[in-house]
Design a protein around this nucleic acid. Structure first.
Length: 279
DNA sequence: CTACCATCCTGGTTGC
DNA sequence: TGCAACCAGGATGGTA
């Protein structure tokens, strides 16, 4: 669900609520998520002070004062709610509860239970199965045209599928891949290996630009996603193609070509694009 | 290696 | 209105 901008927004909300605070209560209410919760989750959290809250790809990293790290992934429908006042009684999808020493409570809620929470030590992170094979952070300093071109070299798969592969670049999902390809003027059906040189440069910059704008908007709210304070992100109003099948293309509607946004299915997922200005 | 597909689970939306 | 089919932001493991 949530892609990089939504996870980043959640991280910032969590950082404000948790950094420097001591965990006073932890409760695992429903441990049978897709990856079962660690049986000792609560006891390993209670009494720990939270250091930094960070992010790698779509994973949230909550660093603890004993060298431990609480790793959270929202899957497709996960949410983290920060409540400053007395929280409502937990519902059936509130799987983990954390409370800290200033009275703030955090609920990890996930209707579909594709999300996860795991524990590791800071030292284990680089070699951890979650992170070992991840590609570069798209907003990091080492992500640019040449780096993207190198990752795409030799890949016969469509560029759309390649960008969803977290080994190529980390953190993109269906929405932002569609939007980035639109901004770069590249067809989602184009062979990944053909995106080299100027095209790769253009695509790398389009990815960075759309992610930055989405983060500034608090992410996109579609069905499940809300920020930690319960507010909606509003980037969904800025989508050029995603979810807009049949709508006039924002680029070529005005120049007389009158292209419309199309929906196709690639590797089982919807792709939205303009066949007239994406080549 | 690479690519495609099904699958995990639940709820909201759509169409008859 | 009722009900069934379909669809959804992700990740992975199996198969070809």
């Amino acid at each position: 669900m949530p892609e990089l901008p939504e996870v980043e927004t959640v991280c910032r909300g969590l950082a404000r609520a948790l950094e420097g605070r001591r965990i006073s209560r932890a409760e695992a209410r429903r441990p049978d998520l897709r990856l079962p919760l660690p049986p000792d989750l609560a006891e390993r959290l209670v009494g720990r002070r939270v250091g930094r809250v960070g992010r790698r790809a779509k994973y949230i990293l909550i660093f603890l004062d004993d060298g431990g790290v609480l790793i959270a992934h929202l899957g497709m429908s996960g949410r983290l709610y920060v409540m400053r006042e007395a929280p409502p009684p937990p519902g059936p999808h509130d799987h983990v509860i954390l409370a800290v020493d200033d009275g703030t409570t955090v609920y990890f809620n996930d209707v579909r239970r594709f999300g996860l929470m795991a524990l590791a030590t800071e030292a284990e992170l680089p070699g951890h199965a979650f992170f070992r094979e991840l590609g570069p952070e798209p907003l990091g300093n080492d992500f640019n045209g040449p780096a993207l071109a190198a990752a795409l070299k030799g890949r016969m798969t469509p560029i759309k599928a390649a960008l969803l592969d977290q080994k190529v670049v980390a953190g993109l999902g269906n929405i932002y891949v569609c939007e980035a390809l639109f901004r770069a003027g590249l067809s989602p059906r184009r062979k990944a290996a053909s995106v080299q040189g100027r095209r790769a440069e253009r695509l790398a910059q389009a990815i960075r630009q759309v992610l930055r704008e989405a983060i500034a908007a608090g992410g996109s709210s579609l069905r499940d996603y809300v920020q930690t304070n319960g507010e909606l992100g509003y980037f969904q109003h800025h989508w050029a193609v995603y979810g807009r099948e049949g709508a006039p293309c924002p680029t070529c509607a005005g120049n007389g070509r009158g292209g419309a946004v199309r929906r196709i299915v690639q590797s089982g997922r919807s792709t939205f694009y303009c066949a007239s200005c994406q080549r």
